[in-house]
């Protein structure tokens, strides 16, 4: 992945909701460096979710209906433990 894309992803991990900011901050610091190119692209797609839905999936309050995104949502959830 080009550096610009990676850094765009880092910036886009800043959200409108504090609870997402805090959880993504942790994920970005601990997990992002270990992701493959394909996984990074998938995380980039997850970042396109509307904040309220995204938070509900990360909190496990609602199951993410898009099966393709679920593994990455689970990685973000796992980073919070």
């Amino acid at each position: 992945m080009e550096e610009v894309e990676l850094k765009r992803i880092l910036w886009r991990s800043r959200r409108g909701l504090l609870e997402l900011d805090l959880q993504l901050e942790r994920f970005v610091a601990e997990v992002l460096p270990t992701l493959s190119e394909a996984e990074l692209a998938l995380y980039g797609d997850v970042l396109l979710l509307p904040d309220q839905d995204f938070l509900a999936y990360v909190n496990g309050a609602v199951a993410c209906p898009n099966a393709r995104l679920v593994p990455m949502i689970e990685r973000i959830r796992a980073a919070q433990r």
Binding site: R12, G16, L17, L18, P50, D51
Partner: peptide
């Protein structure tokens, strides 16, 4: 940030 991710969303 993208408009619909402004803090109004909270």
């Amino acid at each position: 940030v993208f408009p619909t991710r402004s803090h109004t969303v909270a």
